[in-house]
Design a protein around this nucleic acid. Structure first.
Length: 113
DNA sequence: CTTCTAACA
DNA sequence: TGTTAGAA
């Protein structure tokens, strides 16, 4: 029910090479944060799949990866006006992603909510 | 499968 | 700038 996908699955479903998926994850730091198995392998959720699909669309519209990162960060940062607020919100969002990963991990290894 | 590095467009 | 190939 909380199904996750390996990088192989995502690569096939989104038609994006595994190398490119890892490249995007590193370049768009904080945007794509997959869960990790105990062995360190990536486990993507449908949410990640949607984000990756969105990145593909934006790229087809001629946006660079840095443009996409700014856009995706802004979508989670509506009210930030000054630089400090932006940095704080961005950091808070990245922390939130880690917390979300923990929650997903809990749901994965135990029962559903 | 992973990260890292280098080559290529 | 972004993708691809290969080493370890």
């Amino acid at each position: 029910m909380i199904d996750t996908y390996s990088i192989q699955d995502v690569s096939r479903l989104a038609s994006v090479s595994k190398h490119t998926l890892r490249f995007w994850e590193k370049t768009l730091s904080g945007v794509i944060v997959p869960l990790r198995t105990k062995g360190g392998q990536r486990r993507y959720t449908v949410k990640h799949l949607q984000v990756i699909t969105e990145i593909k669309k934006l790229k087809q519209n001629g946006l660079s990866l840095s443009d996409i990162k700014v856009k995706m960060d802004k979508s989670l940062n509506q009210s930030g006006s000054d630089e400090k607020s932006k940095k704080i919100d961005l950091l808070a969002n990245q922390i939130a992603e880690v917390v979300k990963a923990s929650i997903y991990d809990f749901m994965l290894n135990d029962k559903e909510v």
